[in-house]
Amino acid sequence: MDPFVVLVLCLSCLLLLSIWRQSSGRGKLPPGPTPLPVIGNILQIDIKDVSKSLTNLSKIYGPVFTLYFGLERMVVLHGYEVVKEALIDLGEEFSGRGHFPLAERANRGFGIVFSNGKRWKEIRRFSLMTLRNFGMGKRSIEDRVQEEARCLVEELRKTKASPCDPTFILGCAPCNVICSIIFQKRFDYKDQQFLNLMEKLNENIRIVSTPWIQICNNFPTIIDYFPGTHNKLLKNLAFMESDILEKVKEHQESMDINNPRDFIDCFLIKMEKEKQNQQSEFTIENLVITAADLLGAGTETTSTTLRYALLLLLKHPEVTAKVQEEIERVIGRNRSPCMQDRGHMPYTDAVVHEVQRYIDLIPTSLPHAVTCDVKFRNYLIPKGTTILTSLTSVLHDNKEFPNPEMFDPRHFLDEGGNFKKSNYFMPFSAGKRICVGEGLARMELFLFLTFILQNFNLKSLIDPKDLDTTPVVNGFASVPPFYQLCFIPV
């Protein structure tokens, strides 16, 4: 058959498939802009700032609406009420993970971030239990974070109060905490193996944040037939998995079943207990991918939040002064901060919360999916439909947070200066898919920041009023603009 005829037939089939998918069930789905064949609503979305586009569309179609990214149908949730109703009140029905062709290629359905069903539930339950087990290797997770915080302070001392970009050092600290939990080992910041790991993690975040990856996920045929950065992403992930597998083999040879040292040991012990169960989800494949998931999810998000926190503290020296006064009063100079201190430091706690609220790190979270046909607000959402959640619409709700575009710790303080919780605080998402490392991340943010401010004054290279804190939105995360500062020993 003539190649031209084959091409026309293929394009015609794709067009018909697109029209059929977009028209099927439209009477039951939430409203939304009319999609174009094949490309859907992509032309109506700013790929570099999806969150802003969703906010604009919500003003037209309401808090629940339908979009098509290519052939992929998505239902968008915008605003606290619908997000709570879906992710919390109907948590089980909305607990699936959205379709990610690239991740599915890399992870093969294993791990904790992109798995679904029984596998996801069992691996998540085990990971939560293990991360909360403060007795691994007779050292609590808090001990590990405190140790890394001391190392971080010593690295900052080496800058000798000269101007520096904190990106690298602030990236090393949370990565080392995860390494300590998974591998029972922290690395020197100049260790070549550690630097290679950091390089792969950072490069992957840069790649994932590009519009090209959005295109690959919406048109998965590209993955096999086109060159691009997605190939580098898959190569980096394969490198990390190979490295983790080597460490798993080392653990198998040296493990003491009665004295687990780290996450890998705990997983291997669980595998041993379930070795007679042919349906067990505790396999080497799941261990390797879960460890890679924890490394990827637990490094860049925390380091970016820390980097943004220091920029905001530079911009608002009056806030920094209040935090340091609270540190001096509650902790002093002669001991290290600990998590028990947080309950006695409402202002510092409010500042950490406000940093996370203000920066809105992951504006749309990772997409969910419905696990069955769901009736939601008089609409029928078919099983498997991807759910896109606007966390921006919750964290920047102007009824809950007056002047949401302003950095103001009073958003989390009552009139008496006591810490005030808010149900709208969802930087880790909400419901059954809430970030498994939430507790660890909150511990790291509090301890790293208090250790830094206990030991250093922060000095800006320019007038604080002239510092730009506008986030650089890159399609996946909101990151701070480049800046330098000086760490002046107190």
Rank of each mutant, 00 (worst) to 15 (best):
D2Y: 13
D2Q: 05
F4D: 03
F4M: 08
V5W: 10
V6W: 15
L7R: 04
C10I: 13
S12N: 10
L14F: 08
L14W: 15
L15S: 12
L15P: 01
L16P: 06
Q22H: 13
Q22G: 12
G27Q: 14
G27C: 14
K28T: 12
P30T: 01
P33W: 00
P37N: 01
L43D: 06
Q44H: 14
K48C: 09
S51T: 14
S51D: 05
L54S: 03
T55P: 04
N56V: 12
N56I: 08
Y61W: 15
F65N: 03
T66P: 02
L67Y: 04
Y68C: 08
F69L: 13
F69N: 12
F69Y: 13
G70C: 05
E72L: 00
E72H: 14
M74Q: 06
V75I: 07
V75Q: 00
V75M: 04
V76G: 03
L77H: 00
H78L: 08
H78T: 11
H78V: 13
G79W: 00
Y80V: 06
E81W: 06
K84C: 11
E85Y: 06
L87Y: 05
L87V: 04
I88E: 14
D89M: 07
D89H: 07
L90G: 09
L90E: 07
G91P: 13
E93L: 11
F94K: 02
S95H: 07
G96V: 05
G96M: 07
R97E: 04
H99S: 13
H99M: 12
F100I: 13
P101Q: 08
R105D: 04
A106Q: 09
A106W: 05
F110Q: 12
G111L: 02
N116W: 04
G117M: 04
R119V: 08
R119E: 06
W120K: 03
K121C: 09
E122V: 10
E122W: 04
I123A: 06
R125D: 09
S127V: 12
L128P: 00
T130K: 14
L131V: 07
N133P: 10
F134W: 12
M136S: 13
K138T: 14
S140Y: 08
I141T: 10
D143H: 10
R144M: 14
V145R: 00
E148V: 02
R150A: 14
R150M: 12
C151H: 12
L152P: 00
L152I: 10
V153R: 03
V153F: 02
E154I: 08
E154F: 08
E154H: 11
E155S: 09
L156Y: 03
K158S: 11
T159I: 11
T159A: 09
A161T: 11
S162K: 15
C164S: 09
D165C: 06
F168A: 13
F168C: 06
A173V: 07
V177P: 01
I178V: 11
I178A: 07
C179I: 09
S180D: 12
I182V: 11
F183P: 01
F183E: 04
K185V: 07
Y189K: 04
Y189D: 03
D191V: 03
Q192G: 11
Q192R: 09
Q193H: 15
L195R: 15
L201P: 03
L201I: 10
E203C: 07
N204M: 07
I207M: 11
V208P: 07
S209N: 13
T210S: 15
P211I: 10
P211A: 11
I213L: 13
I213S: 12
C216R: 06
C216G: 05
N217H: 14
P220S: 13
I222P: 05
I222F: 15
I222H: 04
I223T: 11
Y225F: 13
Y225N: 10
F226V: 13
T229R: 12
H230F: 08
N231Q: 14
K232I: 11
K232S: 07
K232C: 07
L233Q: 04
L233M: 09
L233V: 11
L233W: 15
L234C: 09
L237A: 10
F239E: 14
M240H: 04
E241D: 07
S242K: 13
S242F: 06
S242G: 12
I244E: 00
L245D: 06
K247V: 12
K247N: 09
K247F: 13
K249L: 12
Q252V: 08
M255L: 15
M255F: 12
I257A: 15
N258G: 10
N259H: 10
N259Q: 09
P260D: 02
D265R: 01
I269D: 07
K270V: 09
M271N: 03
M271K: 08
E272I: 13
K273C: 11
K273L: 12
E274K: 07
E274Q: 09
N277Q: 15
T283C: 11
T283G: 07
T283M: 07
L287A: 07
T290L: 09
T290K: 00
G296W: 15
A297L: 06
T299C: 11
T301D: 04
T301K: 15
S303G: 11
T304V: 12
T305L: 04
R307E: 04
R307Q: 09
R307Y: 07
Y308W: 14
A309M: 12
A309Q: 02
L314K: 02
V319I: 12
V319Y: 09
A321W: 10
K322E: 08
V323R: 00
Q324A: 08
E325P: 01
E326I: 01
I327C: 06
R329P: 01
V330K: 09
P337V: 07
C338V: 13
C338G: 10
M339V: 15
Q340H: 13
D341M: 07
R342E: 09
G343H: 15
G343E: 15
Y347W: 07
V351G: 00
V352E: 00
V355G: 00
V355A: 07
Q356D: 00
R357G: 00
Y358V: 12
D360Y: 01
L361H: 05
I362H: 05
I362K: 13
P363M: 02
T364W: 15
T364L: 14
S365G: 08
S365V: 07
L366C: 06
H368K: 08
H368C: 03
V370N: 05
T371N: 12
T371S: 09
C372L: 06
C372T: 15
K375L: 10
F376G: 00
F376Y: 08
R377S: 04
R377E: 05
N378Q: 14
N378Y: 04
Y379D: 01
L380T: 15
G384T: 04
G384A: 05
I387Y: 00
I387T: 03
L388Y: 08
T389M: 15
L391A: 02
T392C: 05
S393M: 01
V394L: 11
L395I: 05
L395N: 07
D397R: 02
N398T: 12
K399N: 15
F401G: 01
F401H: 01
M406F: 11
F407Q: 00
F407V: 00
D408T: 06
D408Q: 06
P409T: 05
P409K: 00
F412Q: 00
L413H: 04
G416I: 12
G417A: 07
G417V: 06
N418F: 09
F419L: 13
K420G: 03
K420V: 15
N423T: 13
Y424C: 11
M426E: 01
P427K: 01
F428E: 01
S429V: 02
A430Q: 09
A430H: 06
A430E: 10
C435V: 02
V436N: 01
G437P: 04
E438T: 07
M443C: 13
F446P: 03
F446V: 02
L449R: 03
T450R: 04
T450L: 04
T450G: 05
F451C: 15
L453G: 04
L453R: 04
N457P: 02
N457V: 08
L458W: 03
I462D: 14
D463K: 13
P464M: 11
P464W: 06
P464D: 13
N474T: 12
A477T: 12
V479Q: 15
Y483D: 01
Y483H: 06
Q484N: 11
Q484V: 06
L485S: 06
C486V: 11
P489K: 05
